[in-house]
Structure formats: C-alpha cells, structure tokens
C-alpha cells in the first residue's frame, strides 16, 4: 500500500462532532487527556502475541513513552486488556471473568489473528472464533503475530478512541441502552 493511501481511521474524531456544553466538554477533555495518557495494561498473554507484547514493553519499542508503563497483574487496577493470543473454550470463561473484574473505564484490544477470528486455528474444535463473541473489543490489531510497531499503533488508536469519549457531557460508550 502506498503511504498516501493509508487512511488513519479518520472518522474517529467525527464521533464527537455533534457538540457539547463548553464547561462539561472541557472537563471531559481533561479527564480524557488523563485517561488516554495513562492506560495501564493487564499482564495477560496466552500465546505467541504475548511475546511480542513483552517486546513492546522492552527497551527497543518501549511503550512507557506513551504512558502504558505500569503493567498491572491484578485486573482491578488495569485499564485495558490486551488479548494477546488464542482464546480456547476452557479459557473463555476465565477471560470473561477477568474482564468483569476490571474497573470502569475498561478497554479491550484484540491482538493477532487468533483473538480476532480464530486465525489459523479457526477450524479447531476448541478455539473461540474471535473474542468479540465474549467481550466487547475496542481495537483490533491483525497479524500473526503483529509486529511491535503494529501493537504500538493499535494502542495509540485506543488512545485516540478514549479521547473522543464522553464522561460527563453525554453517554459513555460502554453503557448499554436499556431496551424495554
């Protein structure tokens, strides 16, 4: 692909185009600035992509530059979960529980073919066909495994997504609408 043709998810900022109250909007901006610059990942890795996730944390790629520094081992203290690797039937309830244990706001990044769709193991009897059937996913990073650069790009996309959220002036994207 040519560099000029590369479309960097330009629609993302339009999500917020409808406007909001100035004071509340400013407060939202401050909160979103804080949140987006301090996304702490959960140390969660099931397979190959986890090694690349470690590489992103290590010296050459160093995600601490963007504020992803503090990887928390306890889901209660993490902000987003990187589903790095295949999720199988036995692991699915565990993943769901981990997600439920996290405190709001929480985000999910699906890393690699396995987490997105089952990848090379799509036909297997024991592999979940994409984690989005269990938990809501915010960013997908394709690859098998994705390169660390791709992981960083995906994480920065998550930051952008957090920046257009509404905490006070409007609805949070996570809240489910009650259809009755």
């Amino acid at each position: 692909m040519k560099y000029e043709e590369f479309n960097d998810n330009e629609y993302l900022e339009q999500l917020r185009a409808s406007g909001t109250n100035v004071i509340v909007g400013c407060l939202d901006d401050v909160i979103n600035w804080g949140r987006s610059n301090s996304l702490w990942p959960l140390t969660f890795a099931t397979s190959c992509c986890g090694i690349e996730f470690m590489a992103v944390g290590a010296a050459r790629y160093d995600f601490s530059r963007f504020g992803f520094e503090v990887t928390r081992a306890s889901p209660r203290q993490a902000d987003f979960i990187m589903v790095a690797g295949t999720i199988v039937h036995k692991m699915a309830p565990v993943l769901k529980r981990l997600y439920d244990q996290m405190a709001e706001p929480k985000y999910v990044i699906a890393v690699g073919g396995c987490a997105i769709s089952g990848g090379p193991f799509k036909n297997s009897y024991h592999v979940v066909q994409g984690v989005d059937s269990i938990i809501p996913v915010d960013v997908y990073i394709p690859g098998c495994p994705p390169r660390p650069e791709a992981l960083l790009y995906g994480m920065i996309q998550l930051q952008r997504k957090v920046k257009v959220e509404r905490f006070l002036g409007g609805k949070n994207h996570k809240e489910k609408e009650n259809k009755e």
């Binding site: 401050v30 600035w33 160093d62 601490s64 530059r65 963007f66 504020g67 520094e69």
Partner: peptide, 22 residues
Amino acid sequence: CRIGPNRVGPYGTIQSVADMIK
C-alpha cells in the same frame, strides 16, 4: 536502556498528573 515517559508534556514531566486524573 529505555527512554521512559516522554510524550505527555515536555520530557513526559506531567505523566504522573495524567495518571492521577485517571
């Protein structure tokens, strides 16, 4: 042998403020 926070504010100085807000 890393750089550490350097995107939030000059040299990442207000990184911990962002953490606090979050």
